[in-house]
């Protein structure tokens, strides 16, 4: 399952995604680490970027082509 498959409003855990070094490098630089929880906040139309919320305060947007490279698993603990 990748981040691209997640519905708006759903919470997931980032899985290990270090196999794709360029996306991994960018995401961990922003502080998005494997194991962290994110909520999908929105999906822009016509295949535009996905916006996510990380932790309680930080918001990001990323392209679907990037989201496809991010493996996620269903969140085990509730936020």
């Amino acid at each position: 399952m990748t981040l691209n498959d997640i519905k708006v409003g759903d919470t997931v855990c980032l899985d290990d995604f270090s196999h794709n070094q360029s996306v991994y490098f960018k995401l961990i630089s922003l502080g998005l680490l494997p194991g962290d929880q994110v909520i999908v906040m929105g999906r822009a139309p016509f295949g535009g970027p996905i916006s996510i919320k990380h932790g309680s305060e930080t918001f990001f947007a990323l392209r679907r082509s990037e989201a496809l490279k991010v493996q996620v698993k269903t969140s085990t603990k509730a936020l």
Binding site: M41, G42, R43, A44, P45, S51, K53, S56, E57, F59
Partner: peptide, 25 residues
Amino acid sequence: SRPNDEKSRLTQKIDRIVLNPWLGG
């Protein structure tokens, strides 16, 4: 303690409108 999330809630509310698939453009 983390920053209070009042601003975060506001941001979420505004984003729901300005990043809305149809209204955004």
